[in-house]
Amino acid sequence: MLLAYAPALLAAAASFAVPGAVEGARAELLSAALAAHFLKRVLEVLFMHRYSGSMPLDTAATIASSYLLSTATMICEHHLSHDLPDPAVDLLYPGVVVFAVGLAGNFYHHYLLSRLRADAGGGGGGDDRGYKIPRGGLFGLVTCPHYLFEILDFFGLAMIAQTLYALAVATGTAAYLDGRSCATRRWYQSKFQQFPARIKALLPYVL
């Protein structure tokens, strides 16, 4: 996972060192937000997450390429459109707030999951008896609040950028994480007979 996230982090950070690559407050905040997003992921990989398996190198390379391409394209798109008129409705600073909430909420629920895995002894390498139903935060309402906040994170980035590409990335991420959330809820239902029906997959009381 370090290999998957590090190239995108380096691309976002390097954009500040390339003359003319980051021009104006919107471009600066976008590059900074992308760097913060992937820096958080790298730090979580190094110091927080507990893994019970491994990922094939070709899969890691594919994920890394996807994140790198998305990050570089968002930054490059702003460089190419620097001279175009500003959006009629400026979502820059509301986007920063949404991004910060998403980043913080995602980190907090990742922390809760890491404590759960630590208490369970790392999951026993796939042994279902090592897993527990997560508690705390929004886990009492949805199965995957970390995915919910990840979606907020990406839509915050889209609001900062205010480009169709960034919106497409956020929408695609939301659709993917919605599918993963529903699959995770079904897994919990299959493993725990007493799994509460009130706990939804992604959106409290809704989905």
Rank of each mutant, 00 (worst) to 15 (best):
Y5R: 11
A8M: 07
A12G: 12
A13E: 08
A13F: 02
A13L: 15
A14R: 03
A17T: 13
V18G: 05
P19L: 13
E23F: 04
E23P: 12
G24D: 11
G24W: 07
A25H: 13
R26S: 09
L30R: 00
A35R: 04
K40I: 09
K40Q: 08
V42G: 03
L43M: 10
E44A: 07
R50A: 07
R50L: 09
S52Y: 06
S52R: 05
G53R: 11
P56T: 13
D58T: 11
T59R: 15
S66Y: 15
L69I: 01
A72D: 15
M74R: 00
M74H: 02
H78Q: 06
L80A: 10
D83W: 05
P87N: 06
P87Q: 01
P87H: 04
V89E: 10
D90A: 07
D90C: 09
Y93L: 12
P94C: 12
V96A: 06
V98Y: 03
V101C: 02
G102M: 14
N106W: 02
S114P: 01
R117T: 10
D119E: 15
A120D: 09
G121S: 10
G121F: 09
G123N: 05
G125L: 10
G126K: 11
G130L: 09
G130R: 08
Y131D: 01
L138W: 07
L138R: 07
L141F: 13
L141K: 08
V142H: 02
V142I: 01
T143A: 02
P145R: 03
F149M: 06
I151N: 00
I151K: 01
G156N: 13
M159A: 14
I160D: 10
Q162R: 15
T163L: 02
L164V: 14
L164T: 13
V169H: 01
V169G: 00
V169E: 03
T171A: 14
T171R: 05
L177E: 00
D178S: 15
G179L: 03
R180M: 08
R180V: 11
C182K: 09
C182N: 08
A183M: 15
T184C: 08
R186P: 14
S190H: 12
Q194W: 08
F195C: 10
A197N: 13
R198L: 07
I199Q: 05
P204M: 15
V206R: 04
V206T: 11
